[in-house]
Write a protein that binds this DNA or RNA. Structure first.
Lengths: 243, 243
DNA sequence: GCCCATGCTGTTGTATACAACAGGCCATTC
DNA sequence: GAATGGCCTGTTGTATACAACAGCATGGGC
């Protein structure tokens, strides 16, 4: 009820809504590589696009910089940060540990209509197997993540998990786009993802949210291992050398 | 050499240093209750105090608002958030889980001079037993926390732990200041803290940083339990009712 | 006497002009 | 011809004027 009372506040609402809109839009563009690493963003361009001035835009950019997605340099520009799997190892290690807390802290069992959303994502994933598309895969991954976050009622946990997720989720698209065996890798990744979703949905239907955490943990760890292996070819000549 | 060239960059350095200074100062004031919950901060006053304009101050306030320490309301003011133990339960639950990760992820064993700092804090704690002082206790607690953070090399873990710590660490000072048996509670709390520090120092000297995490976890959980009990008297009439 | 409307005051949010800064271009010089 | 110095452009950081907003007091109407 307290939350609903806040909905009545009209003044700050439009301000916060605009901030949220710009923030989510830019974050999405960064994570889908619409703004690839190294891209320079001009504050005035963004201000014009969102029909506002630089001031609100700078608020958003400052937050994205806090989260490690941007870097503003005086006199140069605001640049999308580059990422490398080596620098993300710590984030992945933390994500692995925290993944288990979903389903452990304040577990929330989804209702029927929420399960339908899972089913819908699963069918979209099957369709993706027929017609692979990296961007759609990335979107699916993000939507699935946000759905998983609804399994816990612990708000700080949600916020932290989301922050860490968005610090790492670009790396897959970036690595994939640099790889030679693009289609093979993509198809394999989709297949793995499909299995993860299937397993997690099964675990939820069993009512055991702890298991969801374990599955998730395993998949995050394996995902990192695959990315790490792709960036560090095992001694002998690999398919393609990055760097 | 490349790193040293960046040391010559004067421009952004002073900007970031100023931001950091204002941020740390305000956060400290909030957490030491120099700015008690409900206090209204005027952006112009802060700007004058730090010899700058509202713009940089607003950057800091925005971040403190993100972290839940402030709340800006258009047309009203920027207000220090009020806190209640019930609303912090989720944060505490998360802190309990995350505490164990210190010493587990990328453990860093302190050197001799760092151990001396621990010893120095311990002696300050002993002195505090003789002459209890809530504010000095809070400071000691904060310094000890920051020292503990040096036990891990995982930077994201540090950042998250710090964020969660500062979301909760005011509640003790606030609860204590509202309590009747002020001195007794304070002395007991110092005593408990002294035991925690002693145990943790012993664990570090044994070289087992995992144990440090377990000790820390136990103490955070117990600290929450004591605060919760103080706010929710066990049915029958207690010493004093809050609310 | 009470109630409502309206203006007043003080605050945060926004827009914008200006300062500080980095990088590249070009002319000048050795 | 190459190197170096200064200028020039474009960008982010800062300061400040103005708009939007909430709360309160005050006065008029009933």
């Amino acid at each position: 009820m307290v939350a609903e009372m806040k909905m009545n506040v009209p003044g700050p609402r439009i301000s916060r809504a605009r901030f949220s809109h710009i923030y989510l839009t830019l974050r999405s563009r960064i994570c889908l590589l619409d703004y690839p690493p190294g891209q320079r963003l001009r504050e005035e361009d963004l201000a014009a696009e969102f029909h506002t001035s630089r001031t609100p835009v700078r608020r958003v950019l400052a937050r994205l910089e806090d989260e490690g997605l941007l870097r503003s340099v005086h006199g140069v520009g605001t640049i999308v940060t580059d990422i490398h799997i080596d620098e993300l190892q710590q984030v992945y290690q933390l994500r692995v540990e925290i993944a288990e807390l979903i389903g452990k802290l304040h577990p929330v069992h989804p209702g029927r209509e929420e399960m339908d959303v899972y089913k819908k994502l699963l069918s979209r994933c099957e369709a993706l197997m027929e017609k692979p598309d990296a961007r759609e895969f990335a979107r699916l991954n993000m939507e699935f993540f946000h759905l998983l976050m609804r399994l816990t009622g612990n708000e700080p946990l949600k916020a932290i998990s989301e922050r860490l997720y968005y610090q790492t989720n670009r790396i897959w698209l970036k690595t994939a786009s640099e790889l030679a065996q693009y289609d093979d890798v993509l198809l394999n990744e989709i297949s793995v993802f499909q299995r993860e979703m299937t397993d997690i949905v099964a675990a939820i239907e069993c009512g055991d949210l702890h298991v969801v955490g374990h599955i998730r943990r395993a998949h995050i760890a394996m995902s990192f291992a695959r990315l790490y292996a792709a960036a560090h070819p095992p001694e002998e000549a690999a398919g393609k050398d990055i760097v």
